[in-house]
Simulated assay, not measured.
Amino acid sequence: MAHALQESLKLLLKEAFEGPSEEWSWFTNAEENAGIFGILEGLPAEKASLSRNGSTIAAHADHVRYHMWGTNEFLRTGTFPDMDWQQSWQINAVNEAEWDDIKQALVKEFNTLLAGIDQVQWDEAHANEMLGSLAHAAYHLGALKQMIKA
């Protein structure tokens, strides 16, 4: 069972971040750049810095990175790190270098998470954290899409 859960989590996380790998999808639009990385890829720092309903795309992207960092720490150590959720929303305006750093750090945490899934000693806490991480990514994927439309 654990192997099936691991493979499903990796598949669905990849869809959330990289977009669907098939001509159809489990929950995203089946189109090019449908995942978080595709949405952020060509977006300039100026647009990532625009405030929409009190937040920016840059803040959302870094918040997702921060959440994944916390999940990765839990997978690595078995305990949750102290996390300052208010701090994870503090990014407003970013320049191109800062925006590139955020996107690269997001990719790094994503790759760490994918690799960590295969190392998990599955129990209820780990399953809850991983399923919560998937839901969190899907939520922010939708939020980012709506922000870009605005």
Rank of each mutant, 00 (worst) to 15 (best):
F74H: 08
H67N: 13
E73K: 03
A125T: 03
S25Y: 13
W99P: 10
N128V: 07
H140N: 06
T77L: 13
A58D: 04
V120H: 04
H126G: 02
A137P: 14
V120F: 06
K149T: 07
G54W: 01
K145L: 13
G42K: 04
E109S: 09
G78P: 03
L5K: 11
E46C: 06
R76C: 00
L11A: 12
H3Q: 11
H140A: 09
H126W: 11
H136K: 06
G42Q: 06
G19D: 07
H3T: 09
I102G: 15
H3C: 04
A127E: 14
W122P: 08
N128K: 08
G70A: 15
Y66C: 08
M83G: 10
D101N: 12
V120G: 00
D84Q: 13
A59G: 05
H63V: 04
D82R: 11
A150S: 14
L75H: 00
D62Y: 02
D100M: 04
E15H: 01
A150F: 10
A2C: 03
M68Q: 04
S25P: 06
G132N: 15
G116Q: 06
L114S: 00
L9C: 09
H63K: 07
A58T: 04
S25G: 15
M147Q: 07
G35E: 02
F110I: 03
E18R: 03
L5A: 05
L141K: 00
A135Y: 03
D123E: 07
Q146I: 11
L12A: 12
S49P: 05
K145Y: 11
N72F: 06
E22I: 01
P44Y: 06
I117M: 12
A143M: 12
L75Y: 00
H126D: 06
L11H: 08
L5D: 11
K14D: 00
A125M: 06
H140Y: 05
K10N: 01
E15I: 06
G19K: 00
L75M: 04
R76K: 13
L134A: 07
A125V: 02
L114Y: 07
F37I: 02
P44A: 03
W26C: 08
I36C: 15
E32S: 07
L134Q: 02
W99C: 02
Q119T: 09
E129F: 08
F17W: 02
A16C: 11
A105G: 14
L144M: 09
Y139M: 00
Q119V: 00
F17Y: 08
Q119L: 08
S51N: 11
H60I: 12
N95F: 00
F80W: 14
K10C: 05
R76H: 05
E98M: 06
T71R: 01
K47V: 09
G19I: 09
A137F: 10
P81R: 05
E98G: 14
A143I: 11
D82C: 03
I102A: 11
A137R: 12
A138E: 15
P81E: 00
A138S: 15
H3N: 13
W99K: 10
A137C: 15
I57M: 12
I91E: 15
A16V: 04
G38T: 04
A97Q: 14
Q86D: 15
K10L: 10
W26E: 06
T79R: 15
G70E: 14
L40V: 05
M1E: 09
H136T: 09
G54C: 01
G70C: 12
E46F: 05
N92C: 08
L5P: 05
D123L: 03
K145N: 15
N92F: 01
Q104C: 04
